[in-house]
Amino acid sequence: MSAFQNSIGRGYVVSSTYLSIAIVLVIFIVLFISSYDAFSTVGWKIFTLEWNPSKDKFGVLSMIYGTLSVTFIALLIAMPLGVLTAIFISEILPEKFRLYFKSAIELLAGIPSIIYGLIGIAFFSGWVSSLFELATGRTILTAGILLSIMVLPTIITLSEDALHNIPKKYREVSKGLGLYPFETITKTLLPIAKNDIIGAILLALGRALGETMAVMLLIGSIDRIPDPFYNFLAPGQTITSKLGREIGESAFGSLHFSALNAIGFLLLLIVITLTIITQFYFKKEDRL
């Protein structure tokens, strides 16, 4: 390998890194520029409830509420289910079945979200409406449940990898000190895998916040915060479902279009803030 070849390789790697950083920055900047109109016209009134493009009223509170509550429900269901499944596959299931289980679960991740949406309309909304005796099954809860299934493969696969990558000697030391298998999992393995599992949940959170199609089909698309606010059996609206429904109807360059860009910008801010908080909170000191 000559020094010249080496410098080409280095240049390639370095420029790829800078390029991906640049893409993130460009997205951020472009989104901000195209939403600037809305921010400057509407101002702080963007944090109100009413959304009515014909009256130039663009309040996004109900959408932020919808996004956060759907994500909350999804993670509430998917987190314990996913981590426990990961523990089962990695620690309890005999090694020879592991790959079959994992590929089956990874298959779930490959199903297009519109298919999930169709299944949700066909079954879930019907179940929810008959179970709770509602007029419509298209509620925040339905969307949250469906979303939890969609993010499960992310949590399971990555948490399972995190657990499975812990060298065998840690399990043996733990067993050798007289810990029960259950204690080995909770006291030895989970603390070591903790940060990677949190990473898995973060990735799932990102997917839940950004998922559009399935949520749009199931959430009911009504811009309001239910009363009381924890009544998840009411229809709602998420940022993504709003964007998905209205971006086609808005004229390019109009205030409406700019306002839709603004809620996209807010979504990006939410994702970035949550990521920074979590990474700051869980420092990577306990790594192997």
Binding site: K169, V173, G176, L177, G178, L179, Y180, P191, D286, R287
Partner: peptide, 21 residues
């Protein structure tokens, strides 16, 4: 009872394996 047995018969392994604590 393997946990009881392993409390009485301790083991030190080939390469040191300390926990990240």
């Amino acid at each position: 009872d393997l946990t009881k047995l392993r409390k009485e018969i301790g083991m030190v392994f080939q390469s040191p394996c300390v926990f990240p604590k």
